[in-house]
Design a protein around this nucleic acid. Structure first.
Lengths: 201, 201, 201, 201
DNA sequence: CATGAATGAGATTTCATTCAT
DNA sequence: AATGAATGAAATCTCATTCAT
């Protein structure tokens, strides 16, 4: 079994991987990506340093596995919200925006890791997954809204999806860093207003 | 003259600083801050490694100087656009968005550096400058629009400013990376539509 | 049964040992002893890493066992050829040279291992075995030739044995690596000519 | 200047490289190739560990540079002996054999390194150099001897060159390891006898 | 008999920084 | 004002070996 093959979740190896994972996420939350050493991760996980390499092959391997996992969770959160929305179209869009806000509220460090490390060529694959996953959910919802006549025919839904995703991402990071006390609902209301045009009186 | 004193722009030292700036921005955009070595910066700039330290004191010093410089230029570009707009309010907002798109179209690597490194606690000072500068321009324009009755009373213009800035930043990066042939005006139209509510038919 | 006790050749254990032997010889021939990892040996042999240690105790143990095994086979091949020669002396010498060429033709990787690792102080015991075995055969044949008056009285048969052994070993490796198509008989004729003085017209 | 570019011999860097070189050769002589750590080399050379990497790029780089250097010296020694021989042909061959014996007598550790590490794919280039260099000298001398009628027409001088080189190499290593007190001249006499056919009475 | 996850000592390598020139 | 060789602390990574299953 190679170093990067995930083990069966229940076994001894799966347990180790989970411990290392959790330790890595916590430390990134505290100190950022590259400032986190494998030594520190191993110590916090309560395993030997070699064990990290045995299970993930390299520091890069660990982090790319981590990123992929986070992107997957984000995509799940967004598509879940889209599916659970009472009605498609703009109402679903609001739900997805709220889901994204909540996700980054809960996994704030992940948002920072995402924007800070997205550009490393080593992880282009992960970023591509983000595009197909999270941005895809946005674009799907927007396409439905266009089809339903809620948004104007001919809207560039690709660009609009990126725009909304980036808007929410930026606001979520800023809120966490500077106004953590501000209620999420308030922020959501402001963004929803911006997006579906009720910014004007 | 200390290491961090900027030299007169025309001299030999000013030229050296400019070469190092450009090399650093490009490399950091490609690989991120920590993955970029001073060796690589010096080599791409065509100077000796010692020269980087002679001029900027440290790697962090180079980077924060670089960020401050870029943020200053960005602020100038945005406030220039706001001031030159025929009318204040929403019209001015469109002009500022266009100016931001154009700025990042010209200085693409800087946009990536900004988005990637903006949130590191180490550089809070720079981020504060960004907030007072670029985000301030947005907030000022939005405040004027509220005062003029173009936007609804009570709008959280701080959050809205961050939202629009992040939206434009994200779209600018994505366009440069994936659709460089798409006309800037088209992108601008989509964003303007989103922002002032003409997204709906 | 201790880890270093050889098992009966036919059993499950004998089979495992043989697979590991073969894998180890090949890899060490390709990369050298220290560059070859137990991981790689186990993988190529198709067994678990623990199995190598269970059977051979240590990496060194595997290797010295492997060398001893190979040296024993080589000795058998050479002494068999000497015994089977129609006449003793120079004719027997030719037969032994041919046998050595044939042996290394069949077990090429072992020749490389031998030449590469023979001189390491760690394995003096094995080298002593080689000297008593394979070199002993050469020296015995040479002594007989001296006794028979075919070679001059006073010849340093120890040095001569080493010289001829090294010559054949080197040529065998070179042939395998660079001229595998060259008939063994041709090479043998050149060497035989060199050795018993018919190099001159 | 890249890490592998040799510096001008007189400068500061050249001096450092020479110190590291010398330390590396000494340590290899004592402990063998892979058992020698960069730490130990740096300490004996009296430089920081980083300096070794600054100058040679990697441990492999250091050793391959070392090997190439040794092969060059060996080639020079052999071709020098061939050129200085009073007469070409078999007399020159004797001189080359003596030169090879002397070289490995003086640089014994190098001979061991050579045979032990020749097979690493990283150094195939070096080995190719050996073939063209040292073996080339032997073949040239043999060809001349054939042309002069001293050796029989049609002799496979390529194989013969390899054979003689390997013979001398093996004997030189063996002598150094087991009979260092034996006079070089005696060994040379035995080999010379073997080679030009006076092995028989 | 065989396994393979875990280990940790010890190796190689990186790179921001200094300083004599 | 610029250089680049040298540094060394700190990082990443390797791998023979152990041991519970």
């Amino acid at each position: 079994m190679t170093a990067t093959t995930p083990a069966e979740p229940g076994g001894r190896r799966g347990e180790t991987r989970r411990k290392v994972y959790r330790a890595a996420v916590e430390l990134i939350a505290e100190q950022g990506f590259t400032a986190t050493t494998v030594d520190a991760i191993a110590e916090r996980a309560g395993v030997a340093k070699g064990t990290v390499f045995y299970n993930f092959g390299s520091k890069e391997g660990l982090f790319s596995s981590l990123l992929a996992h986070g992107v997957g969770q984000l995509t799940d959160a967004l598509s879940g919200a889209a599916a659970a929305a009472p009605r498609p179209g703009v109402a679903a869009l609001d739900a997805v925006v709220l889901a994204q806000l909540r996700f980054f509220d809960e996994y704030g460090p992940f948002a920072r890791v995402l924007v800070a490390e997205m550009w490393r060529t080593a992880w282009q694959e992960v970023v591509a997954g983000l595009r197909e996953g999270a941005l895809g959910v946005y674009q799907g919802v927007l396409d439905e809204a266009v089809a339903a006549g809620e948004l104007r025919e001919g809207l560039d839904t690709g660009t609009a999806a990126t725009a909304i995703f980036g808007m929410v991402l930026t606001v979520a990071i800023e809120r966490r860093a500077l106004h953590p006390e501000q209620p999420l609902e308030e922020v959501h209301a402001t963004l929803a207003g911006l997006i579906h045009g009720r910014i004007t009186g």
